[in-house]
């Protein structure tokens, strides 16, 4: 209990200090990052490389559609490669306050199955990204501390430490399951509020993963992640996502993101 009080006190002191020292509120920066405009909808092709410590890798290619709905986005992903998995389709309805809804269509059995998974710390498609990494929790769940300013890949960034409230002793989060990371350190680009780098720390406080967005560009006026990499420091495994053929506001509707659509060949 005593250590929790200390942690909260430390966080408060750090927050006051950081706000006055740098004239920016770390939490506000994280909120701006969270709500970066991604258009009404978008589509892209995504290439995913899973690379083992040995250097050997496997590749997946999917086409991705997304409907932006604030905290309740909908997305559809259809597999192109490997050939044996062509046509497998994955539909997700994100929910902020309950488990996401997910459906999977497997051409092999020609059936749509609803998948129920509440484990957001689990791997996303066998990659080094977890669901928590792909769909960041809302900033209100974190205490953010501005640690300073640094340059990453030639870009001026704020360096912010994020501690999930399940670790700060916040009574509101007492019944919550401990967040996957005890803390993260985020580098946010000053002129775009895009996240360029994150270091994740496990429950023992050891660095466990490093995320790095190596190509961030504006497409149709929207800041877009074109290439990103996640490295698991414990296993040496890496995942690289490469995005191509990005299009925004192509007129997708709610109807596109239903179970019937999963079966259609694209």
């Amino acid at each position: 209990m005593q250590s929790r009080i200390k942690t909260v006190a430390l966080v408060l002191v750090c927050m006051c200090f950081n706000v006055t020292a740098y004239g920016e509120d770390a939490h506000e920066i994280m909120i701006k990052n969270y709500y970066i405009d991604q258009g009404r909808d978008n589509t892209s092709d995504m290439r995913m490389e899973l690379i083992k410590k040995s250097g050997k890798k496997r590749v997946r290619e999917v086409t991705f559609w997304k409907l932006e709905r604030g905290d309740e986005d909908k997305s559809l992903m259809v597999f192109r490669k490997p050939a044996m998995d062509k046509g497998v389709a994955f539909l997700t309805w994100e929910h902020r306050y309950k488990d996401d809804d997910q459906w999977l269509y497997l051409p092999a059995i020609k059936r749509v199955r609803r998948i129920s998974s509440a484990e957001k710390h689990k791997s996303f498609m066998g990659s080094d990204f977890s669901y928590n990494d792909m769909i960041l929790p809302h900033p209100e769940e974190f205490v953010d501390i501005l640690l300073g300013e640094e340059t990453v890949d030639g870009k001026q960034c704020w360096l912010i430490e994020n501690i999930h409230k399940t670790y700060t002793g916040d009574p509101e989060y007492k019944s919550w399951k401990k967040y996957q990371y005890s803390k993260t350190r985020s580098w946010i680009i000053k002129d775009s509020y895009m996240l360029i780098k994150t270091e994740m720390f496990d429950k023992k406080g050891h660095p466990v993963k490093v995320y790095h967005a190596t190509d961030i560009r504006q497409v149709d006026g929207y800041w877009t992640l074109m290439k990103m990499e996640m490295e698991n420091l414990k296993t040496g495994h890496r995942t690289i996502f490469e995005i191509t053929d990005v299009k925004y506001n192509i007129g997708l509707t709610e109807d596109f993101f239903n179970q019937q659509e999963l079966r259609k060949e694209r």
Binding site: F90, A108, I115, S117, S123, F124, G126
Partner: peptide, 16 residues
């Protein structure tokens, strides 16, 4: 196809 897609299903479901 089923062998391949069952493996994919396992991964899609968070199998690590």
């Amino acid at each position: 196809q089923a062998v391949s897609q069952y493996i994919l299903l396992y991964e899609m479901s968070g199998g690590e």
